[in-house]
């Protein structure tokens, strides 16, 4: 346990240089990019003195290097600064949006795993059959489909033709968020408040966007699970288990799948970044009020501090997940020790 703590501390320390490099890149790229917050806000025809005043106010008149050092100093004090467009702290803009994104991606990951792993395992156990072929075809197709197109099609099917599910937002207009919202993780909040009607509403709203995101990524996990299962099904301990009279069902799911799960877990950590990227598009398709949509909005406005802040949060999320994955390893695989 002491080693585990040491490991966590070293991982946390390692994220510092990573964040530094990432922020430096983003800082430079944003300022090299055409356009700036002042012209985005005032338009091209504003009088020169108004533009000048605004630049002074935002500190954009200073040399870029000074701006950079100021920003780093701010970050070192755990301060993400203030939006350049709205009078709002960056942390406050993200406060209710980050939980929306986390909720979306976590549920999407659950869909991905629920679809990808059993299908992959089943395909492997029925190798070369028509069912195996069908499952692999599904995997390839969903992998190729862009997430926003998939989102539109599912909206059309479930939202318009069948009229089963809502296609936008986190709640319907008749659900009063203020009744339960505390942490802004609506699923948790509604459960804590015991507001079951609101929970139902929240769940049917999250269903379609997270399913969309989950399906597009399930292809990767399906293929990975299938490939790993084919390996583990050929292993000696699987043959030995069969020779002891263990039924095929247990051999496949207890022996082979559990061993195949280790590389899948690695992939899960890595694919989380893909999932967040997919979430940006999904949030736009489903008008989901998350940080992905916030990021897009603020890129149009060239709201530098918010863009940088959101990217910091993304980076922290990804490294947090990969750290969690490493810790989970130790619980699944007895050969891994910290």
């Amino acid at each position: 346990m002491k080693n585990l703590l040491k490991y966590i501390v070293s991982r946390v320390l390692l994220t510092i240089p990573m964040l530094f490099i990432l922020l430096s890149l983003v800082f430079v790229v944003l300022r090299v990019m055409p356009g700036d917050p002042v012209s985005a806000m005032l338009g091209d025809h504003a009088p020169a003195h108004v533009i000048r005043e605004k630049q002074l106010e935002l500190g954009l008149d200073k040399p870029i290097f000074v701006q950079y050092l100021n920003y780093l100093g701010q970050i070192a004090r755990f301060d993400l600064g203030e939006s350049m467009v709205y009078k709002q702290r960056v942390v406050d803009t993200m406060k209710d949006k980050l939980p929306a994104t986390v909720e979306l991606t976590v549920i999407a990951m659950i869909f991905t795993l629920l679809i990808g792993i059993p299908l992959g395992a089943f395909a492997a156990s029925k190798r070369r059959s028509a069912r195996d072929f069908g499952i692999r075809l599904y995997g390839n197709i969903v992998y190729c489909i862009p997430v926003y197109w998939m989102g539109l099609m599912l909206q059309l099917l479930f939202g318009i033709f069948l009229n089963w599910l809502p296609i936008a937002g986190r709640t319907s207009a008749r659900t009063f968020v203020t009744d339960f919202a505390r942490s802004n993780f609506y699923i948790i909040d509604t459960i804590v408040a015991g507001n079951w009607a609101a929970l139902g509403d929240v769940l049917i709203h999250i269903f379609l966007p997270s399913l969309t995101l989950g399906i597009t990524l399930s292809g990767v996990f399906l293929r990975l699970t299938r490939a790993n299962m084919l390996d583990t099904l050929k292993s000696d301990y699987v043959l030995a288990a069969r020779a002891r009279g263990i039924p095929e069902k247990h051999v496949v799911y207890r022996h082979a799948l559990k061993n195949a799960f280790i590389p899948i877990l690695t992939m899960l950590g890595l694919q989380f970044a893909t999932l967040l990227a997919g979430a940006i598009l999904t949030e736009s398709t489903f008008s989901w009020p998350g940080i992905g949509r916030l990021l897009l909005e603020r890129i149009y406005l060239r709201d530098y501090p918010v863009i940088q802040g959101v990217i910091v949060v993304y980076a922290l999320l990804v490294s947090l997940i990969s750290m969690l994955v490493d810790i989970i390893y130790a619980f699944i695989d007895p050969r891994v020790k910290y």
Partner: peptide, 21 residues
């Protein structure tokens, strides 16, 4: 029922014939 109970098998490679997990 026969596997293991009537006829048992000891394999080539004891290092890989036990489930590592």
């Amino acid at each position: 029922a026969l596997r293991g109970q009537g006829v048992a098998m000891v394999f080539q490679n004891p290092l890989t014939s036990l489930n590592p997990l």
